[in-house]
């Protein structure tokens, strides 16, 4: 619970020229996701322009297929070369952290637990057909399954938050 509370404390003051609101990130992210899918061949499947889980899966599976000659699943959009969203996000965030002096190595308290969280979230996301971003993107594309998925995701977040609050109050 401590980590959750720490994460929602106000961000340290940053110069106005470096400040970006979540709304701006949301608008730019949505435009990039739609343009990637519709204009830059990041499809099929539909509404595939941005997904941390599916794109990471494509990158890992494509690389293993190329190295070991296996036939792990990749989306049609990643048959020739894999989509590189996760690599891009890591590079972009690293650049932002370095430029703004916010790169700090922090040693984890429970590395095995966070590793397991990663494994579970990836498996759940592949089962659902996308991470939180792609489920929202599919909802915006008015796909019924995407809407059902996003509703289930929101329910999961709400229940987990209440559980964290209940555990902290005990």
């Amino acid at each position: 619970m401590a980590t959750v509370l720490e994460s929602i404390t106000p961000a340290p003051a940053v110069p106005p020229r470096h400040r970006v609101t979540a709304t701006t990130t949301g608008v730019v992210g949505a435009l990039l996701a739609v343009m990637a899918g519709s204009l830059f061949d990041v499809r099929p499947p539909d509404a595939y322009g941005l997904c941390m889980a599916c794109h990471a899966r494509d990158f890992v599976d494509w690389t293993i297929n190329a190295v070991a000659g296996t036939q792990l699943t990749v989306a049609p959009a990643s048959l020739v070369l894999p989509v590189l969203t996760p690599i891009g996000v890591l590079i972009g965030a690293l650049l932002a952290a370095r430029i703004n002096g916010e790169f700090h190595v922090q040693v984890p308290e429970h590395p095995i637990k966070t590793f397991v969280y990663g494994v579970v979230v990836m498996n759940c996301a592949l089962l659902a057909g996308g991470c939180s971003i792609r489920l929202l993107l599919r909802t915006a594309a008015v796909e019924p399954l995407g809407m059902i998925g996003f509703g289930a995701l929101a329910t999961g977040v709400i229940l987990a938050t209440h559980w964290l609050r209940w555990r902290a109050a005990r």
Binding site: R19, A36, L84, T85, I91, A93, A96, A97
Partner: peptide, 11 residues
């Protein structure tokens, strides 16, 4: 797209 989003997401 990832680089742009990563930058904005960090900020």
């Amino acid at each position: 797209a990832g680089i742009v989003l990563g930058y904005l997401g960090q900020r």
